[in-house]
Amino acid sequence: MTNHEVRLRPVDLARLSGLSTQQIRNYEDAGVLPPAARTESGYRVFGDVHRRALRTYRALQRGYGPVAATSVMRGVHDGDVPGALALVDAAHASLHEQRVALRATREALESLARPAPAVPARTADLRVGEVAALLGVRTSALRVWESAGLLTPARERGTRYRQYGPADVRDARLIHLLRRSHYLLEQIRPVLEGLRREGSTEALRAAVATRGEALAGRTRAMLAGAGRLAEYLEHIEQAERVEEAEQAELSEEGR
């Protein structure tokens, strides 16, 4: 910390941010803040860089969550900026996957709204060959979907033949439609889980709309956090350039 830099006590930084002094100490210990200078008596002395770091962390926390935000800031202060940025990339990739799953759910709901193939008029459940013929797929496809945990048809007593009820047929149709749109099985799983959890397409449609708004809000928060991180990194790099210039100047004077 140079002589002309602002000097803040833990209580000063706490008041500026609306936190407790203990939380400020915890943030330094966790690497959220860079190491503070110490007085001869051992008291922490913070500066403008700590205020900027705290502001950056809180912006990241809103978009990326406390765990990821802490890891990012720790990486920056440990000198591993590429690793910190990789964590940011991973969070954006995860959000993208959630959007893909949500889009799959929307397409599935649109597909379910279309007329379904006529189911044979019978009271008994359908067997695997009948469901395959109904959907125009091979029986092996149904077994693959079952092995992946997407379908769980009941088994007939004695023969152990698979029995597909109305909900099983609906799920198989949904899987088939989404597979034709090149969705992976793991991307289809949350669609089925959502439909089963909500209990109806109408309830799932409402849940999808709510989820879409939440993802949009998180995207905006992540953009704001990433922007604040970029500013903080630029500030650190600029401070390092100034320090290097000062050190070079002192070296010249000492010759």
Rank of each mutant, 00 (worst) to 15 (best):
1 M>F: 10
1 M>K: 08
2 T>L: 13
7 R>S: 12
8 L>I: 04
9 R>Y: 08
9 R>W: 04
10 P>S: 00
12 D>Y: 12
13 L>C: 12
14 A>I: 04
16 L>N: 14
16 L>C: 12
17 S>E: 06
21 T>V: 03
23 Q>W: 00
24 I>V: 15
24 I>C: 07
27 Y>R: 02
28 E>D: 12
29 D>F: 12
31 G>W: 08
32 V>P: 03
34 P>A: 10
34 P>Q: 05
35 P>C: 11
35 P>D: 12
36 A>R: 09
37 A>E: 14
37 A>H: 08
37 A>P: 02
39 T>D: 04
40 E>L: 07
41 S>G: 14
41 S>Q: 15
43 Y>E: 10
43 Y>R: 14
44 R>T: 08
44 R>A: 11
45 V>G: 04
47 G>A: 07
47 G>C: 08
51 R>Y: 15
55 R>F: 10
57 Y>H: 03
66 P>V: 07
68 A>K: 01
69 A>Q: 10
69 A>C: 04
72 V>L: 09
72 V>C: 14
73 M>I: 03
80 D>F: 09
81 V>K: 11
81 V>P: 04
84 A>P: 12
88 V>C: 11
88 V>D: 06
91 A>M: 06
94 S>V: 07
103 R>F: 10
106 R>E: 14
108 A>T: 04
111 S>L: 13
112 L>V: 06
115 P>T: 14
116 A>M: 15
119 V>L: 15
122 R>F: 01
122 R>M: 01
124 A>Q: 15
125 D>M: 11
128 V>D: 02
136 G>C: 03
139 T>M: 02
141 A>E: 10
142 L>R: 01
151 L>C: 11
152 T>N: 11
153 P>C: 03
157 R>N: 10
157 R>I: 08
158 G>I: 09
160 R>S: 13
160 R>C: 06
160 R>K: 11
161 Y>E: 04
162 R>M: 07
164 Y>P: 00
165 G>H: 11
166 P>S: 14
167 A>G: 01
170 R>N: 00
171 D>W: 03
173 R>E: 04
173 R>V: 03
181 S>H: 13
183 Y>G: 07
185 L>V: 12
186 E>Y: 03
190 P>A: 12
193 E>W: 01
194 G>S: 01
195 L>G: 00
195 L>M: 01
197 R>K: 01
205 R>D: 09
205 R>Q: 06
208 V>L: 06
210 T>Y: 10
210 T>A: 15
211 R>Q: 15
212 G>S: 11
215 L>D: 10
215 L>W: 13
218 R>D: 14
220 R>K: 06
223 L>I: 13
225 G>W: 00
226 A>T: 15
232 Y>H: 05
234 E>F: 06
234 E>H: 13
238 Q>V: 02
239 A>T: 05
240 E>R: 15
241 R>C: 08
245 A>W: 09
245 A>N: 04
246 E>F: 02
249 E>S: 02
250 L>D: 09
252 E>P: 01
252 E>G: 04
253 E>T: 06
